[in-house]
Design a protein around this nucleic acid. Structure first.
Lengths: 162, 162
DNA sequence: CTTGATATGTTATATGGTTACGATTATCAA
DNA sequence: TTGATAATCGTAACCATATAACATATCAAG
């Protein structure tokens, strides 16, 4: 599975595509992609990195939306709960989902050099985590998997002669 | 591997044992297990659950230690950086390590019913996460793995006739 | 047109974490 | 011993993240 995110790509196009996909998904599922919600998703897509709720809020207030934290948090809640965005616990920040598809368990690769975040997919009920849970009689409902390290370009930069 | 944490046990004894082990480890490695640090570890062990930094701080100030946040955070930093405790990102809270041994990557099973936290072990560079990282050319330095769900006793309680 | 559900906005506050700085104590070489 | 140095502890002030509580607006369904 391609984690995306560390590779170059036509960004303007990927924003437009994702936004359209979200809109279509909302139409199909009778979800209300209101102007604030749509704009927050767009900001996350444009930023193409983890953004704090207060970063988002700054943009919103400059653009004439509500200026108080709940405005940002509510839009983010909507996006997260419907799978259009994810929260990166380790960073207290949010990022647009790069797999706008169905229910899924994201796995994040967070570069401590350039702060880029790549999203990959996993099935937490399998593998080591699933085994540990099973042994303990624990029922996994949701999993947070976040790896901190260095992305290809930061590795190259840090070790130019390796 | 036994995740511990959801099983009953002689708690007073497990606290004493862990504390002694920590003390021995510090002696061996010339680490300074000062009164505050020791007390914070003891609090985490006694609590036997994830505790917020401010919970810890409340105890400390009542016991005559410093009353300001850095006192708690510094002690917690010490414990975390030397493997005596872990931070649960999802809860913004800290918990004593149940594997006082060497360098390891903890995996947490967090019960959303009773808030118990069990710690298991994993090797993040293997399995799905490792594969995804490798494909992306990403070098994992540290991983956060936290599963939210229900522990055996909460499952039994919630579904008495299942 | 009214009712109820959903969404937006505001004020205020709770919770989590850091910076900056000074005082104290431990370590150790001269 | 003494003075240099680093580690630790303490405080005040502050910044960052997140939620509670309440008022208003919108809109579809009856």
């Amino acid at each position: 599975m391609d984690p995306l995110g560390f590779a170059q790509h036509d960004h303007r196009r990927c924003v437009a595509t994702a936004l359209k996909a979200a809109q279509a998904h909302c139409a199909r599922h009778r979800l209300n992609l209101t102007p604030v919600r749509r704009r927050v998703l767009e900001l996350l897509l444009e930023g193409h990195r983890a953004m704090g709720a207060y970063d988002i809020l700054d943009h919103l207030r400059r653009e004439g939306f509500g200026a108080q934290p709940p405005v940002a948090y509510r839009a983010l809640d909507f996006l997260v709960s419907h799978g259009f965005a994810h929260k990166i616990e380790r960073l207290n920040a949010f990022i647009a989902c790069t797999h706008p598809a169905a229910d899924h368990t994201p796995v994040f690769l967070i570069c401590r050099g350039c702060h880029a975040v790549a999203e990959a997919q996993a099935e937490p009920t399998r593998g080591m985590l699933g085994r540990a849970a099973e042994e303990a009689g624990f029922e996994i409902e949701q999993a947070v998997v976040e790896a901190i390290g260095r992305c290809p370009s930061c590795r190259a930069e840090a070790a130019p002669c390796a």
